[in-house]
């Protein structure tokens, strides 16, 4: 398909990338392109300039600190993360990335792209909130750190505003995490998903049931307690061709309980 006319820049440094974004208000960052290129085909987005981030070394790579903290470059692809021995420090990351789409998409698609798209059906937003990730957001005016629960602002909207870029994802140490979903076909788009983390308390974060991930904190890891907590959250999920709102509310309880159970097994 022929895309609408667009200009292109491939900066070699973060500073250059932020400069182009600042100069061109209609510019958009191009990460792996596995969402944005399709969105452009559908004319749902028409950026003036694509700022290709693939040539910026500092946005790549995975580092494991001595205390078990992981620092992920947002341009890390799903395939790179799945194959990273460092990333095994928090096993849920690779486990969930391996469930996203297919080989070709995982080879191009990036961690940063997944979270910055803030599509409510994406896999990683609930995972990032559950594990307590922190996002470094950089702009020409400087940088700030945003906790994952404050990063997702709405459908396709995040705390990384116009002219800003997500430049680092920090994942604290921890192991007892779990993920569960009901997707459309194996490894397809999620109808409802949930990530759980039992690293000090019980934290369950639901995806696909609202514009942004919904966190609940059950009194215990007991399945009934988890289901009660989800019921008490008064979810207001959308209805669509795949599932009614009522069915999504039901699935939310089911996948939350499964995610907690998997987290209990150390995932």
């Amino acid at each position: 398909m022929l895309l609408s006319e667009v200009a292109y820049a491939r900066p070699a440094t973060l500073e250059q990338a932020l400069g182009v974004l600042a100069e061109h208000p209609g510019a958009r960052a191009l990460a792996g392109g596995q969402t944005l290129v399709n969105v452009m085909k559908a004319r749902a987005a028409s950026p003036d300039v694509l700022v290709d981030l693939s040539g910026i070394p500092e946005l790549k790579g995975i580092e494991l600190g001595s205390d078990g903290t992981l620092e992920l470059g947002p341009m890390t692809t799903y395939t790179e993360l799945i194959g990273s021995s460092e990333a095994r420090a928090r096993p849920i990351l690779g486990e969930v990335c391996a469930q996203i789409a297919d080989v070709q998409v995982r080879n191009r698609g990036t961690i940063g792209g997944n979270v910055c798209a803030s599509d409510p059906t994406n896999h990683l937003p609930p995972v990032m909130v559950a594990v307590g990730a922190e996002f470094r957001v950089s702009g020409t005016g400087g940088e700030r750190t945003v906790p994952a629960e404050e990063f997702f602002l709405g459908v396709y909207m995040t705390a990384a505003g116009p002219g800003e870029l997500l430049t680092k994802i920090t994942i604290p140490p921890g192991r007892s995490d779990g993920f569960a979903s009901v997707p459309i076909g194996v490894d397809g788009t999620c109808i409802v998903n949930a990530a759980a983390s039992l690293n000090g308390g019980v934290r369950v974060v639901l995806g696909c049931v609202g514009a942004t991930p919904v966190a609940v904190e059950p009194a215990s890891a007991d399945a009934e307690a988890v289901r009660d907590a989800v019921r008490d959250a008064d979810l207001d999920p959308p209805s669509d061709v795949h599932a009614s709102a009522d069915y999504r509310r039901h699935l939310a309880e089911v996948v939350a309980a499964r995610a907690v159970e998997r987290a209990g097994k150390g995932s």
Binding site: M1, Y8, G33, Q34, V37, N38, K41, L50, D52, T79, D102, V103, Q104, V105, N107, R108
Partner: peptide, 22 residues
């Protein structure tokens, strides 16, 4: 739309869907 894979090629030793790469 990046779903069917009929356009798959190997780009720098990596399998990609060439309808989702510029």
């Amino acid at each position: 739309t990046g779903n069917c894979g009929a356009c798959s090629v190997i780009l720098d030793r990596t399998l990609v869907k060439s309808c989702m790469v510029l």
